[in-house]
């Protein structure tokens, strides 16, 4: 019933079937195809013999090489820890100044710290550590809690307003929302704060005087009589030009009206002691003008 024809171009016969004008040649499967089928199958067979492969009733074929990926991971992690352990243990044990004096240890710090900072700190403080709205810059000399080695290490360990039991705690009250100051008073206080920082608020001397009184009554207990901040309380210095939330009229109003409470995670359980020390060295080097 079907008529086999010969394709003049290839010389192969058709199968004799035809579908709406489409025919098929009955060309034999090229040798190369069979060859590569055999190669890939032999490769698979060998792999099955050597590696864990086929399920059995209660277990599986474990393979002649006895390789187990879980064991491999454990071994590799242990080996990597061992390489790092030599210098990491020393860093964990020594005070920061001794580490800074040790060029061999510092070589390790210089290699490890930038990626540590990038993966753990940069998300908030920025990849150049310059901070951003709501997140303090780490490259200036304005420190909320203090910039000496021990203080930085402690801040890293316990965080700020974090769930850690020893956490540093600080909160700027919501003077407007909680009814301690009215809107007019907040604007006067904001003008005064701008004048503390040396900004030209355009306010009259009388208005600034009023602001000074408001400041003494409401702000000085944390920020100090002179507004220079109190590091033990984490209260920022208002007389410098560094702002966390901004020094504009709007930003200051928002800060005084609604209060502020920044947050930094505690790293004690997330980074090792050596890692926190390397970060502290890295951060202090940034504040001193950068690692380069």
């Amino acid at each position: 019933m079907s008529v086999k024809e010969r394709d003049p171009l290839t010389g192969h016969q058709t199968t004799g079937h035809e579908w709406n004008g489409i025919t098929e040649l009955n060309t034999r499967v090229p040798r190369a195809v069979w060859f590569f089928i055999i190669v890939t199958h032999i490769w698979a067979l060998v792999y099955w013999v050597l590696m864990p492969a086929w399920p059995l009733v209660n277990t599986y074929t474990r393979g002649l090489l006895g390789i187990d990926q879980q064991e491999q991971v454990k071994e590799r992690v242990a080996a990597a820890d061992a390489t790092r352990g030599i210098w990491a243990d020393q860093i964990a044990a020594l005070p920061l100044d001794k580490i800074r004096d040790d060029t061999l240890l510092m070589a390790n710090v210089d290699r490890a710290a930038p990626a540590l900072f990038g993966d753990n700190c940069a998300a908030c403080h920025g990849s150049r550590a310059e901070g951003g709205p709501g997140y303090p810059s780490l490259v200036d000399d304005a420190w909320l809690w203090g910039g000496d080695d021990e203080t930085i290490l402690e801040t890293l360990r316990v965080g700020i307003n974090s769930p850690h039991p020893d956490t540093r705690y600080a909160e700027m009250l919501a003077f407007g929302r909680d009814g301690m100051l009215d809107r007019g008073q907040i604007r006067i206080a904001a003008d005064y704060v701008q004048s503390l920082a040396g900004l030209d608020s355009g306010a009259s001397p009388e208005r600034l005087e009023e602001g000074a009184a408001l400041f003494a009554d409401n702000c000085a207990s944390c920020h100090g009589e002179d507004g220079a901040g109190v590091q033990d309380l984490g209260a920022p210095n208002l007389t410098d030009t560094h702002w966390i939330y901004g020094g504009s009229d709007e930003a200051l109003f928002e800060t005084i009206y609604g209060g502020r409470q920044g947050w930094m995670p505690a790293w004690e359980n997330r980074l090792t002691k050596a890692q926190r020390k390397m970060l502290a060295i890295y951060i202090t080097s940034l504040a001193d003008g950068g690692p380069e």
Partner: peptide
């Protein structure tokens, strides 16, 4: 995922190549 399942997925993927190319 148990390694033997990974092995099967990998080897069958490789054996698949020639029929696909065909």
């Amino acid at each position: 995922l148990p390694q033997w399942v990974q092995t099967l997925g990998m080897t069958f993927s490789v054996m698949l190549l020639v029929p696909s190319w065909a």
